[in-house]
Each structure stands twice: as structure tokens, then as C-alpha cells.
Design a binder for these strands. Structure first.
Length: 575
RNA sequence: GCGCCCGUAGCUCAGUAGGAUAGAGCGACGGUUUCCUAAACCGUAGGUCAGAGGUUCGAAUCCUCUCGGGCGUACCA
């Protein structure tokens, strides 16, 4: 609950004189009762029983009796171990609605992160492959966290740590040289121009097929990667080509999703710094030889060793992650670094963080692996080989197509249909991905993704569009100087209370790195509004009442807009 | 084997720094439109919160064990 809340201030002030407890101790305990009939704010007295040496219900009773009629508080009432407060509703509505109206797009923002930098590592796909649905989670969660932290005043740095280095590119180089034209068809340049990433993926598959028959290919691939690491110009040229065509395709999708990065510094970026990192590890006595590989032994921490260099001297991704962390620490001086990476890499990050700790870096405590569950299909695990891969591009396309159908059916005269369909279709996909807790595995189900009824992205956007429509119809500027005592409906009260708790939900979403918290909040906000809208007219004959309701509607619109923005979704004004 | 994550309505999920009677949506069934966008709203049905112990004023939430599923477990990322 916001500190400057005058109702809480008054409550805490009076309780201080009666209990001797500091306002700081009281404020965090105050909550909203589950039911509005019980009051507007509540103080559970259970935690106070030891401090005050009395049973909680007695504490509540005594405090209720001693509580004076104050400026903003009507009364305090004991109910079991709870002390419930009733405040002047018009004043409550005034405080909240004026705040939302005044702060506008900044409502829900804070300055706690001012002067602090947060590095967020997200999306980070491997190049030379198409983006598939399972790449969506990191990108979408990372983007939401980026916006959430930005809204808290942090300087945010978004990094796309591309998987653009490693043995697999040796494989690709070998495959390209051997069968480049064959796989890409008789006109390789044409095929590579039309769908180069598809052609590269074909080469990758072909390599693995052939390697089964001829294991010497693996050696050739290792040799090719070694040459690449050493800076061989031919290998480098091919690799750059792979990277260029991949990024071109990725950027199309990032643009569609509205996701941006400050840096595309992938694993290859650290190639030249790798040796220094390894030298530091050796000097610190951490790196040792084991089974011909260079490792950091982590036996005493109950983990398998962290591999730094393979027996052929080539680096591994742990090496590059350690190096990247060092680089980011010196380059950005972050006060927090988030790795939005799947939970199958938990052990990897535990190892990397442990190694960084052993290297003596104090900032390792600020590094967090923001993990998330896998995307699965009804038929089982996502698998490239079994052909169980759904491309991200395909999902977005389908969603947009489906939205077009709905528009044709429900609102055929909508102007700018194409763009609206795009905004809503993409919104549906983003919301579907964000709306369950990170760590759970999610089931990919076309029926779910293409359903736009109920708790979905389009539901939120629809509610927003509907609010815009009402305000458009009202046709005059929204004023905050209105008589709020006219807002007597229960849903009006609930709406006001919901608007009050928006900042709390953004803080919680950011701190727990769980965008779902905000998703749930917005669904609740929208459903209260829709219920209200279906039962009461906003624009009516009573001029004063209309003005009050318009203010409430406009504040609801504003909060929906702010919330959707934080989730990385568009907010169409008509749909 | 060991480690981590997960188990809430037929399905998909909220609720988890312990708090007042376990909630939504989808699907099913029944209703609401001379009225600001029906992508909405209202109603009905649906639960031993996987199971068993424990901690306490109070547990879906914390601890232990069991069962079930997922992921990981040295030269892929």
C-alpha cells in the first residue's frame, strides 16, 4: 500500500498513541478486508498479541473503543481478531481518482530504482534456426520485466545473448561446404535468399544424419569450429552470413511482438576475452585438469564440475557465461542482473554463479536466474526431430487470421482492420504466454491460443476499447473536479479499490519477476468494470452523475492502458 | 540413484513473505441486446486443494515422508 495514503496515515497515527507502536510497524500490517461490508481497511491483531500481551480479539476491541472519530475515518470496529476501519468513501474515491487522473501514463510508476542499473538477458535464441513457440517465453517475460523495472525507475539494459558460438557452427560450416547447393536445391543462392534460415536448418539436420554414417564428420566439425575460434577468414565469412540472415528473420518477429534490445551481443562477442577469464580462473587456483578437460571442481558444493574447456581446447557455454558476467559487471555496473532462461538450465546457472562467487565477485549475489517451465504439447515434449515444432511465425500468423475472422463477424466496419487484427492477435499470444506462473510447464494448445473469450488478452483490449468508446461518445474533456459522493454503487466502490491497488501489483510483479501477477490484476479490473458497465449507464441524464462516472471510467481506461503496456501489449482504442 | 520444479473443478489456471466462506476462465446447460462495442454480462452444475503426518490461535500456502508427472545430472546450449 502506498506510503502517502492519507487514510493509512491517519490510522497509523492514532494507533501509535494507543499502542506505542511505531507507524513503520503498523503500516505493513494493514490490508484490505476480503469483503467490502467488513470495512475499507483492516488490521489483523494476531501479530500484536505478544507485543501487547493480550489476546488478539481483546486488542481489537480495546483499540476499536479508543479509536476517535477522525477526519477521514468514520469508525473502527472489532471483528474477532481483526480491527476494521470504515472511511469516508467519497474522500477515498477522490484521493485515488485524482491521483490516477493527474499521473496519467505514469500512474503505477515509482522512483525506487533511480540511479540503479538492471541488466536483463532475454530471448537469446540460437542462430541458424527458426524461432519456435518455445522461444516466446523468454522474450515475452523478459520484455515485461524490462518494462516493469523501467517503470520503477531503473536504468534497464536489454541484452539478447544470441547463441551464435560453439561446436554447432563448426557442423554448419562443414555441412554448408559439402552440401550447401544440394540441400538448398539446384539454385542455392535463390533458395538461400527466399528462406535462408530454413536452408540452414536443413543443413543442420543433414549433418546429423550423415554423421551417424560417417563419424569423422564430427572431427571435421570440431576442426572447423577451432578454425572459427582462431579467426580463420573463410570460416568467419560463412559464420557472419549465417548470423546476418538469422538476425534478419528474428528482427521481423521481434518487431511484430514489439520487443527491443539494447545489445545483440551473443556468445561470440566474448571470444576474444575468453582467454583472460580462463587465466584468472587458473591463477585463482580454481581451474584444474580432469579427464583431459579444464574444469572448476564443485564437488564440495554438491555439483558436477563446471566445464571450461573441452579436451580439444574449445570453449564451452559456461566459459562464455562467466566471461559475459564479468564483462557486464565492469561495463554496466549493474545492481541486478536477470537471466530469463528456461528451467532446464538451472544447474548450469547454479554452477556459473558458484564459480563467480569463488572468483570473489561480490555482485554475484545480484544475479538471478529467472527460470520458466517448458512448453509441451498434448502429444508430449517439443522435439525438433519428431517434427513437433510449431514456428513462432506460424502462431502469430494464425492468431492474426483468427482475429480478422472475428472482426469480420462482429465489427466489419472497423477502420484500419489489418492493423487492429495484428495488435489483437499478437496481444492474445503474448497474454496467453504470460498468464501462468513462470515455473510451470505450459501446454501449447491451439484452442487456447486462438480463443479470445474470457480471461484472454483480447478481453482486456476489448474492455479498453469499450472504455475509449464511452469517453469518445462523452465528447468533452474529463474533469477531476466532480462530486464523487454520487458514486454509490458497490461496483463503483470495488472499481476504485481496484485502481488503488494497481501500483502494489506492479511492484509485486517486478519483485517476484512474475508478470502473471499483473495479468491477474488486469483481468480482475476488467471484469469488475464489465459487470458495472452491463448494469449501469455511464452517460446518463444526470449531468453531475455522468461527470463522476466518466472520471471513474477514464481512470479505469488509464490503468488498463498502463498495465497492458507493462505486459508488452498494444492498446487499440477501437476493435 | 541423486538434485531441482510441479500436483487446486471434466479441461486450462489464479490464490504461496500463513489470515476471515477455496476463486476465475474454457467446456456444458439456461437466460440478457428498441439502451454508451454481446470479443460483454447474469444464473445452474462442478472440490477429501495428490495422500499421510507435523508446526499453531489459524495451513492450498511452512516442515517431513509417500505417490504421480517434468527437467537436470562432465566435454550440446
Amino acid at each position: 500500500m502506498p506510503k502517502e495514503n492519507p487514510f493509512l496515515k491517519e490510522i497509523a497515527h492514532h494507533l501509535k498513541t494507543h499502542t506505542g507502536l511505531e507507524e513503520k510497524e503498523i503500516l505493513p500490517l494493514i490490508d484490505q478486508p476480503p469483503n467490502p461490508e467488513m470495512g475499507d481497511y483492516t488490521l489483523p491483531c494476531f501479530p500484536l498479541k505478544e507485543r501487547l500481551q493480550k489476546p488478539p480479539n481483546l486488542v481489537a476491541q480495546e483499540l476499536a473503543q479508543a479509536f476517535p472519530t477522525a477526519e477521514l475515518i468514520i469508525k473502527a470496529k472489532a471483528e474477532g481478531g481483526y480491527l476494521n476501519f470504515f472511511v469516508k468513501h467519497a474522500e477515498l474515491a477522490r484521493w485515488i481518482l485524482e491521483k490516477v487522473h493527474k499521473e496519467g501514463n505514469n500512474y503505477g510508476h515509482s522512483t525506487v530504482g533511480r540511479g540503479k542499473t538492471i541488466v536483463i538477458d532475454y530471448s537469446s535464441p540460437n542462430i541458424a534456426k527458426h524461432l519456435a513457440v518455445h522461444h516466446l517465453r523468454s522474450a515475452v517475460i523478459g520484455n515485461a520485466l524490462f518494462r516493469l523495472y523501467k517503470a520503477r525507475g531503473y536504468h534497464c539494459i536489454g541484452i539478447n545473448h544470441l547463441g551464435d558460438w560453439g561446436t554447432q557452427f563448426g557442423q554448419l560450416i562443414v555441412a554448408y561446404k559439402k552440401w550447401g547447393s544440394e540441400v538448398a536445391g539446384s539454385l542455392p543462392t535463390k533458395a538461400l535468399k527466399e528462406d535462408p534460415v530454413d536452408a540452414l536448418h536443413g543443413l543442420y539436420v543433414k549433418f546429423h544424419e550423415e554423421a551417424k554414417k560417417d563419424p569423422s564428420l564430427e572431427d571435421q566439425a570440431r576442426q572447423a569450429f577451432r578454425e572459427l575460434e582462431a579467426g580463420d577468414s573463410e570460416a568467419r565469412r560463412l559464420w557472419e552470413h549465417f548470423k546476418e540472415v538469422s538476425l534478419k528473420e528474428f528482427n521481423k518477429i521481434y518487431r511484430a511482438l514489439g520487443i527491443k534490445f539494447d545489445y545483440y551481443t551473443g556468445e561470440s562477442f566474448y571470444n576474444e576475452m575468453l582467454n583472460d577469464t580462463v587465466e584468472r580462473l587458473k591463477k585463482a587456483g580454481l581451474a584444474t585438469m580432469s579427464e583431459e578437460a579444464l574444469v572448476v571442481n564443485l564437488d564440495q558444493y554438491g555439483m558436477p564440475p563446471c566445464l571450461l574447456k573441452k579436451k580439444d581446447e574449445a570453449s564451452l557455454y559456461a566459459t562464455r557465461d562467466i566471461c559475459a558476467a564479468e564483462y557486464r559487471a565492469t561495463e554496466f555496473g549493474f545492481s541486478k542482473m536477470l537471466y530469463v532462461v528456461g528451467s532446464e538450465q538451472r544447474l548450469h546457472f547454479k554452477q556459473v554463479f558458484k564459480v563467480l562467487e569463488l572468483m570473489g565477485y561480490p555482485w554475484v549475489k545480484d544475479c538471478v536466474h529467472v527460470d520458466f517451465g517448458l512448453i509441451k504439447f498434448k502429444e508430449g515434449k517439443m522435439s525438433t526431430r519428431a517434427g513437433r515444432v510449431i514456428l513462432l511465425e506460424e502462431v502469430l500468423k494464425e492468431a492474426i487470421e483468427r482475429v480478422k475472422e472475428v472482426i469480420q463477424e462482429k465489427n466489419p466496419n472497423l477502420p484500419n482492420k489489418e492493423e487492429m487484427a495484428r495488435q489483437v492477435g499478437i496481444g492474445a499470444v503474448i497474454f496467453a504466454d504470460l498468464s501462468s506462473r513462470r515455473t510451470r510447464d505450459v501446454l501449447f494448445d491451439w484452442k487456447e491460443v486462438l480463443n479470445f473469450d474470457g480471461e484472454t488478452g483480447p478481453y482486456l483490449q476489448y474492455t479498453h476499447a469499450r472504455l475509449c468508446s464511452v469517453i469518445r461518445k462523452y465528447g468533452r474533456p474529463v474533469e477531476s473536479a466532480v462530486d464523487l459522493s454520487l458514486l454509490k454503487e458497490k461496483d463503483e466502490y470495488l472499481l476504485v479499490r481496484k485502481l488503488e491497488s494497481f501500483p502494489k501489483s506492479t511492484v509485486s510483479a517486478a519483485e517476484t519477476c512474475e508478470p502473471v501477477v499483473l495479468c491477474n490484476y488486469l483481468i480482475e479490473l476488467a471484469s469488475i468494470f464489465n459487470r458495472y458497465y452491463n448494469h449501469h449507464r455511464i452517460i446518463g441524464k444526470n449531468e453531475e452523475l455522468t461527470r463522476a462516472r466518466i472520471l471513474l471510467a477514464d481512470c479505469t481506461r488509464q490503468v488498463l492502458r498502463n498495465g497492458l503496456y507493462l505486459l508488452g501489449m498494444e492498446t487499440p482504442e477501437e476493435m
